[in-house]
């Protein structure tokens, strides 16, 4: 039932996208030439602003230190150390990415409204959807840069450790770099979906509500298979509610390859791509809704 419902909701989502695009085509088509530079400008200033926020820099240094410090668990065997480094490193990247995604996305639009910086932008020839898209693109660039840096640090640590132990007898460190990078990229896609959803919520809710909802969505999104099992065993209204949650909340666990990678298990790139394509469709629907809601918001 849930798989069919999921496909149905996905098709409905795509149909909504198609309908909105068709209906609003006349409105945005002449402005499309103008929209992209505006979106890019807003994204750039969002990135520049984040670069100057000390808190992001401080937390990032902390995460780098955590990843690097994992290198010094010398009491573990090289194989165990490899597992721990990959698992701990990817977990640090994911957790920091989620916190950052919530921190950046939940505050982005509400803060612009509270600080009234939005007035000087929306009184210029900038459409509201361009503002929302610019903010989202900015968040994607910030998250991409940070996940990228942290992945490079993790890979560097793994390579360093590999060099350190390669001469030891009876040791197979096997840093498994390709899957590590793949898992980090998949984490980034999960954050992209989560960020879009947080932005959607932030267009209608207060900052506190947005942050709270973001944590709940992250928790629920990471436990979707358990929710599916619960739904299968439930009855009546509870069953329906759980199925709705299962189908509406993004399946963030589909992007999570940490377990396979750290346990040297084979990684299914196909299922990764499936998750990415599903995530892109979901994100599109969510962003269109965010633009529609923000369009009607009084600032």
């Amino acid at each position: 039932m849930s798989a069919a419902l999921g496909k149905l909701l996905f098709i409905i989502g795509l149909a909504i996208v198609a309908a909105v695009v068709a209906i609003t085509r006349k409105a945005w088509a002449p402005a499309a030439g103008h929209a992209l530079p505006s979106i890019w400008r807003i994204a750039k200033i969002t990135v520049a602003e984040a670069r100057r926020r000390r808190v992001i820099q401080a937390v990032m240094v902390l995460v780098v230190m955590i990843i690097v410090s994992m290198n010094f668990f010398s009491y573990l065997s090289p194989h165990e150390q490899s597992r721990m480094l990959i698992s701990g490193g990817l977990a640090s990247i994911t957790v920091f990415g989620i916190l950052l995604s919530i921190f950046v996305a939940a505050f982005m639009i509400p803060q612009e409204i509270e600080n009234r910086t939005v007035y000087a932008i929306l009184s210029k020839p900038v459409r509201r959807f361009e503002f929302v898209m610019g903010k989202y693109l900015g968040a994607l660039i910030i998250l991409g840069a940070i996940i990228g840096i942290l992945t490079v640090v993790l890979v560097g640590v793994l390579v360093f450790q590999d060099r350190l132990v390669q001469d030891l007898p009876d040791s197979k460190f096997d840093p498994n770099l390709g899957p590590v990078v793949f898992a980090a990229i998949m984490s980034y896609f999960a954050l992209a979906v989560l960020t879009a959803l947080i932005i959607l919520i932030s267009t209608v809710a207060s900052t506190t509500m947005t942050v709270l909802s973001a944590f709940i969505i992250w928790a629920v999104g990471s436990l979707q298979s358990q929710i599916y099992e619960l739904a299968e065993n439930a009855a009546g209204a509870t069953k329906l509610l759980l199925f709705i949650i299962y189908n509406v909340v993004p399946k963030l666990e589909n992007f999570d390859f940490r377990h396979q990678v750290s346990n040297m298990m084979p990684v299914s790139v196909i299922s990764g791509w499936h998750a990415v394509i599903h995530g892109i469709g979901y994100t599109l629907v969510v962003l269109i809704l965010a633009a529609i809601f923000f369009n009607d918001r009084q600032v």
Binding site: I45, A48, E49, R52, R53, N115, R116, T117, Y119, A120, S123
Partner: peptide, 13 residues
């Protein structure tokens, strides 16, 4: 051109 009350612009630039 619009000048908002109390000049709200991005403060880190």
């Amino acid at each position: 051109g619009f000048l908002p009350e109390d000049a709200y612009l991005y403060d880190c630039f």
